[in-house]
Amino acid sequence: MFEYNSIADLLRLAQKNNTTIAQIVIKSEAEEYETTEALVTNKMQQRLDIFAASIKNGLDDEGLSTSGMVGTDAKKIEAMPPLILGNIAHRALLYALAVSEGNAKMHKIVACPTAGSCGIVPGAVFAVGEAKGADREKYSSAMFTAAGIGNIIAKNACVAGAVGGCQAECGTAAAMAAAAVVDILNGSNEQMVHAATLALKNVLGLVCDPVAELVEVPCVKRNGFHAVHALTAAEMAMAGVKSFIPPDEVITAMYEIGRLIPVSLRETSEGGLAKTPTAREKQAQLQNN
């Protein structure tokens, strides 16, 4: 039996079976859906190809979104060599922006965990994977690790901006990405979950206030930020930094905070950035077109 309902479960099962978090996630999925581990792995490999294509499509498309608010930032980052960031962080930022801009421009993406946060995991994972020469198996393992973390957050808290704010969407994506990056770096299971926890903890309370009810402002740039943020969490965890509050308690706190965020700041576009003069003007212009 490989059922897991908490981070503690995941760590216990991995230790008991002397294996990785990714392996437990694969076994659990095969068990729950009465399928084979090979088929589960195969399905993830297909998604890896779509992730890779979504980065490429995002970089290739130089146009703007229908609203005209986003679409060209990845190009700007690509055109300029990193001034302050390291190469890997610069790539993570670039890829995350590309995927998220591609999403806004109706390209094919893998929601991860949502469409609004779809650039963070592939951005961080592919930037680190390329730099470290990860093979297909390693990418796949990293994605299963990310999936396990995301699954537990979805079960015990939420991943929808309408329920828990941006912390639930981009925060969860950053937690998933951080754990996945530690997996690529061959960190321990403990380090993976602490990376995830540190990433989530740092964005608690983040609200969801999209301009004109579109997944564009501030969402696209926030994907770029969170991909780099996930790398910071992974760097800390690899150095042995741990979250003082245990992972499962942080997830519960995220959910509680989400319920406390006013509805106007949970994807309803009735507050925050969405109600600034500039946002109102843009929204009116889009609706009168």
Binding site: R47, K105, M106, K108, T114, A147, L214, V215
Partner: peptide, 21 residues
């Protein structure tokens, strides 16, 4: 909810409710 609801669905952007739905 399975892991391919977390790493997924595969869809055309930008919104799971307003586009994929």
């Amino acid at each position: 909810m399975g892991i391919f609801d977390i790493i997924g669905p595969v869809m055309i952007g930008p919104s799971s409710s307003h586009t994929a739905g």
